[in-house]
């Protein structure tokens, strides 16, 4: 059994990398930028996290997964809190995460430099063939965080992880 004296921030993050998003199982909560704080306390570890979209139905499940995974891997008590001070933006997603997302078949969000515009949703590169000859079919998809696009080059419908301000 480890105590909080034998673990550090890096070991906590390493363990958080094992908690995957239930809707996109190739991405961890760290990849997605959902972790906003890790605090080592005398009695255990305190994690602050944020959902991607406010109405994400998986928040409770993810909180539970963080708690169970970390408690079993680190052997300390873990508490998980939704951080209200920070809100999720698609720019929080790491470049490595975007690569994994693309390989999984979902187009990653473009980097946002200002507010969302219609343009940022156009010509999203197709994750299957790479073509930019695509158009937005609907800003809503199979989950809150995805939009539906169509690729004119390969003739396939594909999903995109939506950019969010």
């Amino acid at each position: 059994m480890m105590s909080t004296q034998t673990i550090n921030i890096a070991t906590v993050y390493a363990s958080l990398e094992h908690v995957m998003d239930p809707e996109i199982p190739v991405l961890s909560v760290v990849d997605l930028g959902m972790i906003t704080g890790v605090e080592l306390e005398e009695t255990g570890v305190h994690i602050k996290m944020i959902p991607t979209f406010a109405a994400c139905p998986a928040v409770g499940y993810i909180q539970q997964q963080i708690k169970t995974t970390l408690e079993s891997e680190l052997g300390v008590a873990v508490s998980v809190e939704v951080d209200k001070q920070v809100h999720w933006q698609s720019n929080r997603m790491t470049p490595a995460a975007k690569e994994k997302l693309k390989n999984f078949g979902i187009a990653p969000p473009k980097v946002l430099t200002g507010e969302i515009s219609t343009e940022i949703m156009m010509e999203v590169p197709c994750p299957h063939c790479g073509s930019e000859q695509t158009y937005l079919r609907s800003p809503f998809g199979s989950t809150l965080c995805r939009a539906i696009h169509f690729c004119k080059a390969c003739g396939q419908v594909f999903e995109q992880f939506k950019p969010l301000e």
């Binding site: 406010a54 809100h87 933006q89 969302i116 800003p139 939009a147 969010l164 301000e165």
Partner: peptide
């Protein structure tokens, strides 16, 4: 949070 989501 809500403002960004409402854009869609």
């Amino acid at each position: 949070k809500v403002k960004g989501e409402l854009k869609y």
